[in-house]
Design a protein around this nucleic acid. Structure first.
Lengths: 210, 210
DNA sequence: TTTTTTCTGTTGCAAAAGCAACAAATTATT
DNA sequence: AATAATTTGTTGCTTTTGCAACAGAAAAAA
């Protein structure tokens, strides 16, 4: 995503220009943050990858979003509407920039450059999120596991412009992302293979159709 | 939603202040607009109700979003990411305000008040959409029809602050919204009734739990 | 390196959801 | 007011999905 470059630029040059900015590192499975309304926190993933997850009352785990280098997250992008708590979990070693704001829409009192740039970029960042959410909904509304898998593969394929790619998720996590049972998904992957739609070695997928 | 009032205010006073604004009426089942990238159109529903729908290759209909009075829609809020076409369909007689923009983020050349206010409101409107999308995802990730129904009822209930409410959808449309088979949903509704969780007369629901 | 933990791949069985078809009720249309 | 169209409610049957359990592979930790 071309927005990442902008973020990179301004993070690198400006991360020390505002006293409300803190950098912190996390190791695998640590909770980077949880989403609480009015926490007024915005985070930028400087290195590593992390997932936004929710656990429901039945113990089901759902991966809401997946973050990689230079992705931005925080409650502004996900206004909490239910009692289910949301966590951002580190998938490995992570470096995260935390930024606490008073009012995301208004200028920082100290008038720092960091905040100014962030405020400018915000609408674009949010629209970026909206696109992700829409894609997500499109996947989730598909009626069968097969359609979800194929939809997801098409997405990845068109993102990387190749019919052959490694999944950014483990298969276990992919099931949580598509909101289906893992073993049922494995079964469907096998059938897709048998029907000649895909090739699969470990988590490398090759699309054979179209 | 408190934002509606702002919209109402400024629409009523300013709808004639920009030459790029057009008002049009639609009758039931007419297509108000379809989503095409770079169409640069923003619509405000002045009266009636409408649905944003998608038909997939298998002929399944999915209601992506439901709009009522003063809701705002258009491609800015749903960046098209796939080949499936999206339509906004009138559910009855509708009055719609169309606004064509050059660049939603920049001021209108003629510097009209309409555009200025809209540009100011836009981030808030978008965040509003994000909340909706997140709620939607939360519903769709629920693993069973029962959980989807209950989740949806809770949402409506907490929105209207009452345990007794009429559904804003027909049952047929509700199934398309929850992305499940209608008859299977009817069966589950019956079971919910039999298990004493809800009362149901026509499309009026009363929650008996909690 | 060895041990432990997590992830992958598989399967039988049970439960849930989808499909199809139809009658009754409700809502539009003429 | 009569007719047509749509929505609701229901059910038997089929297919899909979920659950549980386990063995082997791979990855992480000791």
């Amino acid at each position: 995503m071309n927005i990442s470059f902008d973020i990179k630029q301004f993070v690198e040059t400006l991360e020390n220009s505002c006293h409300k900015v803190r950098k912190k590192t996390f190791s695998k499975n640590e909770v980077i943050t949880n989403y609480i309304e009015k926490r007024n926190q915005l985070c930028i993933l400087l290195d590593g990858s992390a997932d936004l997850v929710r656990y429901d009352l039945n113990g089901n785990r759902t991966i809401i979003d997946h973050f990689s280098k230079y992705d931005v997250f925080g409650e502004v992008f996900y206004i909490v509407s239910t009692n289910n708590e949301l966590f951002v979990e580190a998938k490995g070693k992570c470096e995260v920039l935390f930024y606490i704001y008073d009012d995301i829409k208004k200028k920082c009192k100290i008038n720092c450059k960091f905040h100014e740039t962030l405020t400018e970029l915000l609408p674009e960042l949010i629209l970026n999120k909206v696109t992700n959410l829409n894609m997500r909904i499109e996947l989730l509304t598909k009626r069968s596991i097969r359609d979800k898998l194929v939809g997801y593969f098409n997405l990845i394929s068109s993102m990387y412009l190749t019919k052959s790619f490694s999944l950014p998720f483990s298969l276990t996590d992919l099931a949580d992302y598509l909101s289906v049972d893992r073993s049922a998904m494995m079964r469907e992957l096998k059938l897709l293979k048998e029907d000649g739609f895909i090739e699969k070695t470990g988590n490398k997928i090759t699309l054979l159709y179209k």
